[in-house]
Simulated assay, not measured.
Amino acid sequence: MSLPCIARARRFEPGAHRPFFMASEQVGWIREQDVPLLAAWPDVFEIGAAAVKLSARFDENADRRSAALAAVIGALAAQGRIVGWRDETYAVRNAFDGAPLAYIERAASRFFGTMTYAVHLNGIVKYADRAPQLWIARRSETKATDLGMLDNVVAGGIAWGLSIKETIVKECWEEAGIEATLAARAEPGRTVHVLQSLPEGTQAEQVFVYDLPLPDDFAPRNQDGEVGEHRLARIDEVARWIEDGEMTVDASLATLDCMLRHRWIDEEAAAGIDTLFVAPLIER
């Protein structure tokens, strides 16, 4: 079976983008249609036929790069070119443990195609007398992206300054009312690498997948208004939602990873997913 989420996770055309560099390192991808917008800041960007570079005059440190980018990002947001402002800082870095080259508003990460990081938790309820089930969330209609779609019980981007574990605790409480002591039981799965074109730009993201065993008497309770509802569903129901494209790409891949590791589905049901557990071959 060929699932649409697996193909979409690598639906990206390098030829429709220009690599984005800072400090001699490629850190992102900018769509050809967006490159002319940056010409308004000739003192910030060096625009060439093959690439866009942040001017070397800002190479002194990450703070200088950040300040230069902040002025551009604010102007692009005012023009409606960058949407979904979060007031959340992301670090520009090609490895999660790498030193940040700059700091940008989260909403700008897809415009510049910079690498982002996220955690997704599969909320698993196991029973003594029947098959396990999964808690699934429906994203609020007011979310900046993928509004109204089905999602994992907990999922969120990792902001600068937070570790994976700290993000898990934070997101568990905000999205599902899961206390820190219970969130600490999260068990690591695999890491999914996504590189896909979206209406707002490029999603280049590493998704750290975790499983969280939940008591059978626990019911998620959203705290931050970002989840419309929660459902406790059978494995076959969730598999059908993935097949029908009702779940987000990220959540679909995180859930498939869980199902494969627990052998709830056959490998043939998720043919091609193994390629997503390694970084794309496109040079970063």
Rank of each mutant, 00 (worst) to 15 (best):
N94Y: 05
G245C: 08
W135Y: 11
A62R: 05
K126L: 01
P220S: 02
W41C: 00
D274C: 07
E226Y: 10
S197T: 14
G189H: 05
I242L: 00
K170Y: 10
R130G: 11
V169W: 02
V27Q: 12
F58L: 02
P42Y: 07
M22L: 14
C172Y: 04
F112V: 03
I6V: 09
V72Y: 01
G80K: 09
G123R: 07
D217A: 12
G272T: 10
G161I: 07
Q133H: 02
A23C: 13
V27R: 10
L121D: 05
S2D: 15
F111C: 13
W85K: 14
E32M: 06
V153L: 13
S24V: 04
M247D: 02
P14W: 07
E268P: 01
A118Y: 05
R130S: 10
M259N: 11
I158E: 01
E141A: 12
W85Y: 04
V92C: 13
W160V: 05
L182M: 11
V278Y: 03
A78M: 14
R10Y: 11
A16D: 13
R93D: 01
W241Q: 13
D257C: 06
E175L: 08
A269C: 03
A251V: 07
T142Y: 09
E268M: 11
I168D: 12
F208V: 02
A219P: 08
A56P: 05
E13C: 11
Q79H: 12
F277E: 08
V249F: 04
A279R: 15
P213W: 07
C172S: 15
G228V: 03
G123L: 11
V249P: 04
E46A: 08
A91M: 00
H120W: 05
A75M: 07
L162Q: 08
N94R: 12
P215I: 03
A50G: 07
D224G: 06
Y210G: 03
A107L: 15
R93T: 09
V194K: 02
P42I: 03
V27E: 05
E60S: 14
S109A: 15
L198Y: 00
V169Y: 05
A102D: 10
A91V: 00
W264H: 12
E179I: 01
A176E: 08
L276A: 10
Q26V: 04
A95G: 13
A270F: 07
A67H: 09
Y127G: 08
Y210A: 09
V72K: 01
Q133G: 03
K170E: 13
W160S: 14
G15Y: 03
W29R: 00
V227I: 15
G225A: 05
A144P: 06
L150V: 00
G177T: 13
M259L: 15
A254V: 08
G74Y: 11
M22T: 10
F111P: 13
E226G: 09
D87C: 03
F96G: 01
T248P: 02
V249N: 11
D34I: 00
E200T: 14
E226C: 09
K170W: 06
A159M: 04
D244G: 07
I164F: 09
N61P: 04
R65N: 12
F277C: 10
E246G: 04
E174Q: 14
D236K: 09
A183E: 03
L260P: 04
V238F: 02
V207G: 10
A68E: 04
H120E: 14
D151L: 01
W241A: 11
D274T: 13
V35D: 09
